[in-house]
């Protein structure tokens, strides 16, 4: 379970301080599919970054399955990201120098998994997202939809409990966007907690819960 209490995030210093999040309190149950919506600059991506341990809040408390994430050191946070969180980005963020399989296996390598096991798991995961035949393909040779599926497979590599997706369909056409959403939905049905940031209300409607943000605050929640 994810629990956030009075999360505040400031950027800048002195007179140039921007308040990106203004006391967000949030609770997401395990296995829930949550969509966070709002206009550009409302703080939804900042919230997602804090959820994923990629950014730290200025004030407030954040617990994930009872663990105090806000009190974690850099090292603990890296381990937390590696073992608990799977990220899916709008721009895919695949390593161009690695094949699809190597990209998928990347988090496994950092977790100390051996080469043989990495290969096997990468195969299974690529098969899972329907890209078994693209095992040796480099990102430059993949379409946008395929790259996002590789990114999802990579996010699943360490069996995370939470999948965070930041505009996962933002760079995709409608057809590929639907495929990605179907995949996320499927993962959620298997028990994974999915938190997705989107400005597309149609996609948000596919989630169990929709949180609407504006100006750094949650202004509405809908189940």
């Amino acid at each position: 379970m994810i629990e956030m209490k009075e999360i505040v995030k400031h950027y800048g210093k002195g007179d140039n301080v921007t308040e990106a999040l203004k006391g967000i309190s949030l609770r997401i149950e395990n296995g829930e599919f949550t969509a966070i919506t709002g206009h550009s600059g409302c703080g939804k991506s900042t919230l997602l970054n804090i959820l994923g341990g990629m950014d730290r809040q200025t004030k407030g408390e954040y617990f994930c399955d009872g663990e105090d994430v806000s009190g974690m050191s850099e090292r603990e946070l890296a381990k937390f990201r590696n073992s608990h969180i799977g990220f899916v980005f709008q721009a895919f963020h695949l390593a161009g120098e690695l094949t699809a399989a190597e990209n998928v296996a990347l988090p496994l390598g950092y977790a100390g998994v051996g080469a043989k096991e990495r290969k096997e798991r990468a195969k299974v995961l690529l098969d899972r997202v329907g890209l078994a035949e693209k095992y040796k393909a480099y990102p430059a040779k993949l379409s946008g939809g395929e790259m996002q599926r590789v990114a999802i497979a990579r996010a699943l590599a360490n069996h995370p409990r939470i999948l965070l997706a930041d505009e996962p369909t933002g760079n995709l056409d409608h057809e590929n966007g639907e495929k990605i959403m179907a995949l996320l939905r499927e993962l959620n049905k298997e028990g994974m907690t999915v938190v997705m940031v989107t400005h597309d209300l149609e996609l948000a409607a596919m989630a169990d819960r929709c949180i609407h943000m504006a100006d750094g605050s949650i202004i509405a929640q809908k189940n």
């Binding site: 990629m54 590696n82 969180i85 963020h93 950092y110 990579r154």
Partner: peptide, 16 residues
């Protein structure tokens, strides 16, 4: 920076 940031997001430790 970009390549490192991706790796950090995936949970690479500072030492690694």
């Amino acid at each position: 920076r970009y390549s490192m940031a991706v790796r950090m997001a995936l949970g690479i430790s500072r030492k690694s």
